[in-house]
């Protein structure tokens, strides 16, 4: 997965975020989004206890007691607040986070997410993934279209363990934007020069095509 493809996904998701929203960004591609928000102001929540997360500090300003959930040094923006882990998950579980942008292992055609455990591998970490899935008002998934082995991420039925019953609203890959509803998954936008046939070939679920399909 090239960096340009990752940036393309981050840029497209940045467009989905609205001024003033409270947003939690998962690890990986989601962490690139703040660079592409332009004039839009969103408030980033970090589940280890900060609302108002700012960019990476200069090396001489690094304090490893001011870190992101990925344990990377960060800064605080004007108006930031600090709180403990239980308050942080009041925000997350209690439905106070407008948008969670999450990475995935798989998502099914109704938007059910698998993003914490690979069958047959050691399952020794879940972190805040299930709390975010259960509690965020809106879930946007950021992912490459296919896994490293070429298998599709958007599948008919999950083969990886589910992260919970709550469904995602949108999936953005380097090729396309999909939205989910109880009717299934719909292709709303094509982001690369891929043909519809090719896209269908590398996708594991049947999707409907929006009447207003956008091709960039």
């Amino acid at each position: 997965m090239s960096q340009s493809a990752r940036i393309k996904i981050a840029k497209r998701i940045a467009q989905e975020l609205s001024d003033g929203e409270i947003v939690n960004l998962g690890v990986g591609i989601p962490t690139l989004i703040p660079d592409y928000l332009g004039d839009k102001k969103v408030y980033l929540q970090s589940e280890n206890g900060l609302l108002g997360m700012g960019p990476t500090p200069e090396p001489q300003q690094v304090n490893m007691d001011l870190i992101s959930a990925s344990k990377k040094p960060i800064t605080m923006e004007i108006g930031a607040s600090l709180f403990d882990s239980s308050d942080s998950f009041v925000m997350i579980r209690g439905g106070h986070i407008d948008v969670a942008v999450l990475g995935i292992l798989q998502v099914d055609e109704f938007g059910e997410i698998a993003n914490w455990s690979v069958p047959g591998k050691d399952v020794l970490g879940v972190g805040g993934a299930m709390d975010l899935v259960a509690g965020a008002k809106k879930i946007i998934l950021a992912s490459t279209h296919q896994a490293k082995d070429g298998s599709p991420k958007l599948v008919k039925k999950l083969t990886y363990p589910t992260s919970g019953g709550k469904k995602a609203n949108m999936l953005v890959t380097e090729h396309a934007v999909f939205t989910f509803s109880n009717k299934g998954v719909e292709l709303v936008e094509i982001l690369s020069d891929i043909s519809l046939e090719e896209l269908q070939k590398i996708t594991g679920a049947n999707f409907t095509i929006s009447q207003e399909l956008i091709r960039n």
Binding site: E47, S85, F89, I92, V123, V126, G128, A129, M130, D131
Partner: peptide
């Protein structure tokens, strides 16, 4: 024993 982070805190 693995517990989701928010469940652990609560």
């Amino acid at each position: 024993e693995l517990i989701p982070q928010g469940t652990l805190a609560e």
